Simulated assay, not measured.
Amino acid sequence: MALFMIGVGAGCSKPQGAGLAGDPASIGDPAMGKALIEKLGCGSCHVIPGILNAYGMVGPPLEHMARRQYIAGMLRNTPENMVNWLRYPQKVVPGNAMPDLGISDDDAHQIAAYLATLQ
């Protein structure tokens, strides 16, 4: 799964409220999200902390995803935008490396909750 997410460059200050701040459980179930990430094979495209064999080099590494300001270099990193990105990456940024995987709204919330644990 190519979660093509790009953080902003070094030196940028983090505006208040940026990133997947807060309690990941308010988004979904991080444990379920982790299981879904493993099941979907996201690690074939990404390096993902806490995910077995997640050493992919197609998409960006996802460490510190909860603290990043942007998703795909253009969406504010909010739970709502993360869910939208996970469900419809080709609609959000046509032609990017992240495929549409048919992820349900519920599953996208669980995955976003796991990503919110990656401080």
Rank of each mutant, 00 (worst) to 15 (best):
I48N: 14
H46F: 15
I103L: 11
P24A: 06
D107E: 10
I71D: 01
G56Q: 12
G43W: 12
K34P: 03
G56E: 11
V8A: 03
P30C: 07
M82W: 03
R67L: 14
V58I: 15
G95A: 07
T78I: 02
L62Q: 10
F4D: 08
G28M: 09
K14I: 11
G73M: 10
V47M: 13
K14W: 07
L40R: 13
E80Y: 02
P49Y: 11
D100V: 10
V92Y: 04
M82P: 09
T78F: 02
V47W: 10
V58G: 15
A108S: 09
H64K: 12
A54F: 14
D105I: 05
G59C: 15
L115Q: 00
A112H: 01
N81F: 02
I71Y: 01
G28A: 08
Q69S: 13
A18Y: 10
L3Q: 03
I103V: 14
V47F: 12
I27V: 10
A31F: 02
A54Q: 14
R87L: 03
E63A: 14
R76D: 11
N53M: 14
I51P: 15
E80M: 02
I71H: 02
M57A: 12
A21T: 14
M74I: 12
L75N: 07
A31K: 08
C12W: 06
A21K: 10
K91T: 08
S44G: 13
A97L: 08
R76F: 11
Y70F: 14
M57I: 14
D23R: 04
D106I: 06
V47P: 06
A35M: 06
N96Y: 03
G9E: 08
G50F: 00
P89A: 00
K14A: 08
V93W: 02
N84D: 04
L20C: 06
I48P: 15
S44I: 09
V8D: 07
D106T: 10
D107K: 03
G28V: 06
N81K: 01
G95V: 08
K39Q: 15
I27L: 03
I37A: 10
A10S: 04
I103D: 06
M57K: 12
S44E: 15
G19M: 05
A35K: 10
F4I: 00
A97H: 03
L40T: 05
E63K: 12
G28Q: 06
A116F: 00
P61R: 11
K39C: 11
A72W: 10
M1P: 05
